[in-house]
Nucleic acid binder design. Structure first.
Ligand SMILES: [Zn+2]
Ligand SMILES: [Zn+2]
Ligand SMILES: [Zn+2]
Ligand SMILES: [Zn+2]
Lengths: 130, 130
DNA sequence: TTATAAATGTTATATTATTACACAGCGTTA
DNA sequence: TAACGCTGTGTAATAATATAACATTTATAA
């Protein structure tokens, strides 16, 4: 099997849900919401999430154990994510900053690590919460 | 009570253990190891971990749910961490790169977020695992 | 068509983290 | 001294997050 072009039923259901939310969703809240669509078990959710993360349709916010849709339609950057997180209202925004991305992409440590991915999370207070 | 200078018994026990390991430890593995010292419950571990994170003695590797000691004796950077993580052997190293840190510290988005913390995790393969 | 990779459905279980409550120790200050 | 606030402790219970194992089905490739 080559690269899968079309999403499967479960993957579509779960991606739809995540895309409708502009904020990250947690796995068990997703599970709760898709039970009416016949998805009954955590594993079904986690499998779809894994796949969607892998193909870059969604990203995991590691510090929150939550998943957010990628708005960048041509997301080549499943492996290069930057987020801004408000610690008061928990609002999360994906950041696309060319200069910063470049800097991170080009970063080399002094140990000969071969990087293929990074995830950066900024924390603070958003305008509304300052 | 002012800022606490000295660590408490539980905090010391747990920091000692983490400092002895050059790799991240998980909360329940810590719990297992400190049972012989009279720490019996998860909460006792998590409370110590929270405190140690807060004062910058250790850092949490978010993508691994694990905790590593900060080697930087004067760590003013509890709130500005960069890690390199090998996805094969799971070796984790804290990175201190002045230029990159500066770049991250100075980063401003276009939404008026007021940042006070960031965490960056690089993933890839270390020299041994390439 | 046959082999194989990917996805599904289900049950059970493992792992990570928090809530709730009672109490002890220390420093401040009334 | 006594009252108070703050931080930490100990314990039990439970919540939240994630994976293992197994049987089956579907999609693609040769
Ligand atoms: Zn994205
Ligand atoms: Zn906010
Ligand atoms: Zn550090
Ligand atoms: Zn390695």
């Amino acid at each position: 099997m080559q690269k899968q072009e079309t999403l499967t039923k479960n993957q579509k259901i779960i991606l739809d849900l995540i895309e409708k939310s502009d904020q990250p969703l947690k796995a068990y809240s997703i599970l709760f919401d898709v039970k009416k669509k016949g998805i009954n078990a955590p594993l079904q959710v986690y499998r779809a999430l894994d796949k969607l993360v892998k193909i870059g349709k969604i990203h995991k916010i590691e510090s929150r154990n939550a998943f957010i849709a990628c708005k960048n339609s041509k997301c080549q950057i499943a492996n290069a994510t930057i987020f801004s997180i408000c610690e008061s209202c928990e609002d999360v925004t994906e950041i696309h900053d060319h200069k910063l991305s470049e800097h991170l992409r080009d970063f080399k440590d002094n140990k000969g690590m071969k990087y293929n991915k990074y995830n950066l999370e900024f924390f603070g207070l958003c305008k509304k919460c300052v």
